[in-house]
Amino acid sequence: MAQLPTDGSIAVRIEYFAVLREHVGRAQEELRTTATTVGELYGELDRRYAFPALGRVKVAVNDEFRDWSSPVRDGDFVVFIPPVAGG
């Protein structure tokens, strides 16, 4: 994250769980993105990985639930949350 962005991009860390972890083939990754919201970031990753059609996916930034319109900032830790099934 010390690397200076020259293209307006930011560095984010993504962790994948369950069906998304298996689909992507890894539990986490760090990447640079020009996305400004978590919704845009999801769209960017969906274009790269062609995520499976899921029901209502939620998103968390830095271990808190956020709206899809929430900003994504340099150094953020982002998790996309597929439909849950505890109990």
């Binding site: 769980f17 369950a18 069906v19 298996e22 499976p52 059609a53 899921l54 029901g55 968390a60 998790v79 949350i81 597929p82 439909p83 849950v84 099934a85 505890g86 109990g87």
Partner: peptide
Amino acid sequence: EVKNRVPIWKKEHYAEGDSGWINCEV
């Protein structure tokens, strides 16, 4: 509420040998 809100995922392994993530499979 725990079943609806806590980020926990369940994968079932079936007698036929296949498996699936509950609420996540098409």
